[in-house]
Simulated scan of single mutants.
Amino acid sequence: MTTQHEEPGHGDSPAAWTAVVVMLIAVTIGTVAFFLNMPWLVWASAGLLLLGLIVGWVMAKAGYGVRGPKFVPKKTH
């Protein structure tokens, strides 16, 4: 029985960062729109949230994910 396992990665990649930033912007806009009683903007921000998820997935498939060929991990000391 081996105790070694492959680290799954922590999402520290361009794809993950882009997805998270887009989603944070969407949640921020949605929260303000909800407070200002603007239902159309709340739904638009929900769409932007889904778009952030899709953008992250597409970037990961394009090689910018944790194990992608275009991803260069940071060197740690």
Score class of each variant (00 low, 15 high):
residue 59 M to R: 09
residue 55 V to S: 03
residue 66 V to A: 04
residue 29 I to W: 07
residue 34 F to P: 00
residue 16 A to E: 11
residue 50 L to P: 03
residue 25 I to M: 07
residue 67 R to C: 02
residue 63 G to H: 08
residue 55 V to R: 03
residue 15 A to C: 08
residue 25 I to K: 01
residue 53 L to F: 15
residue 36 L to Q: 15
residue 37 N to H: 10
residue 54 I to A: 12
residue 72 V to T: 13
residue 48 L to Y: 13
residue 47 G to F: 13
residue 59 M to T: 07
residue 57 W to Q: 09
residue 20 V to Y: 10
residue 44 A to K: 04
residue 25 I to F: 12
residue 58 V to N: 03
residue 62 A to E: 13
residue 10 H to R: 05
residue 13 S to T: 11
residue 23 M to A: 05
residue 58 V to Y: 09
residue 40 W to P: 02
residue 18 T to V: 08
residue 11 G to V: 04
residue 1 M to K: 12
residue 1 M to Y: 13
residue 41 L to D: 04
residue 49 L to S: 01
residue 71 F to T: 00
residue 22 V to D: 00
residue 5 H to S: 14
residue 46 A to M: 10
residue 32 V to M: 10
residue 7 E to C: 06
residue 39 P to I: 05
residue 47 G to A: 13
residue 74 K to C: 02
residue 31 T to E: 02
residue 50 L to M: 15
residue 19 A to S: 15
residue 37 N to G: 00
residue 11 G to F: 10
residue 71 F to Y: 10
residue 38 M to I: 13
residue 19 A to K: 08
residue 35 F to P: 00
residue 35 F to Y: 07
residue 17 W to M: 10
residue 30 G to R: 09
residue 3 T to M: 08
residue 2 T to A: 07
residue 43 W to G: 00
residue 28 T to D: 00
residue 20 V to N: 01
residue 42 V to E: 02
residue 33 A to C: 11
residue 29 I to H: 00
residue 21 V to W: 07
residue 26 A to M: 12
residue 55 V to D: 01
residue 2 T to Y: 09
residue 65 G to F: 11
residue 77 H to P: 15
residue 70 K to M: 08
residue 74 K to G: 02
residue 5 H to I: 14
residue 34 F to M: 09
residue 75 K to D: 05
residue 1 M to L: 13
residue 26 A to W: 14
residue 13 S to Q: 01
residue 33 A to L: 13
residue 26 A to E: 11
residue 65 G to R: 06
residue 72 V to L: 04
residue 10 H to C: 06
residue 69 P to S: 11
residue 5 H to C: 08
residue 28 T to K: 00
residue 33 A to G: 10
residue 32 V to G: 03
residue 13 S to F: 06
residue 2 T to F: 09
residue 69 P to A: 10
residue 60 A to Y: 08
residue 27 V to W: 07
residue 24 L to M: 13
residue 38 M to N: 08
residue 56 G to V: 09
residue 19 A to E: 13
residue 28 T to P: 00
residue 71 F to S: 00
residue 70 K to T: 02
residue 3 T to C: 03
residue 36 L to W: 14
residue 69 P to C: 02
residue 15 A to I: 08
residue 65 G to C: 04
residue 66 V to W: 05
residue 35 F to H: 03
residue 8 P to L: 06
residue 57 W to R: 10
residue 76 T to K: 08
residue 14 P to E: 02
